[in-house]
Amino acid sequence: MVSQFSNRDQDDSHGNGSLDQSAAHEAEQPLGEELAKGWRTIVPAALAAVPLGLALGVLVVQMGLQWWWAPILSAVVFAGSMEFLLLGLISAVTPLPQVALSALLVNFRHSFYALSFPLEQVHGFGWKLYGTFALTDEAYAVSATPDSHRWSRARIIGLEASFHLCWVACVTGGALLGTLIPPSVKGLDFAATALFVVLGIEGYKAQRSIPVPIVALVCALIGALVSPSNMLVISMALFVCFLIGSYYVRKHKSLGENGRESKENNS
């Protein structure tokens, strides 16, 4: 037992030692090394985004936009699933307030990324602005480790910027390829539908709440029946109302249960 403990102590001290060393090492790293580290951090996510970016680019052209809108769209919006949706909204000439509301609802999840993203490591107001601008799902996912709060600014900005460049390049490449696809090939816009279905299934796997997808589909159906041109806003508003309502019902229930429990404890 004693030897085991002492072994562990040695391991711990060794671990701390190497940590300190690596932290000191990181501080000494030249800028290029840190940028390369950022790139290596994001590379798996960037590879996964390549086919999606190409598909989005193809869609830009298929929706009747000039190919050069692809780099503008992908660089300025820089939010994958919203870009797919935005193409549909643009081709339907959706009023701008409705576009804004759609963006708010689709990207609402991003407002929670602030809770764990290591922005405090990104010194300087301008860099912080870019750090938040490029805070995509992917950047959040790869930096959602406790370790990231010791990363350098160059590494964080490096991973965001390299993903940004990669995304713009892929979407632009897709748009140029898209100009080569003959008009007899139809139905590529189904990629957006398939993307949302897959994201929905993935979300469901994490959440495991059976009513939520069903309620969402009912909301969508009501929206489509009430007013097809305002479907998105109506269905999303209904769905958010349902969520707020179900939150208070749950809270009420759990309060009731707690009350009962405390009564039982008292008796």
Partner: peptide, 8 residues
């Protein structure tokens, strides 16, 4: 929200 939004 994400689950429902994606299905909508």
């Amino acid at each position: 929200m994400p689950v429902g939004v994606m299905f909508v």
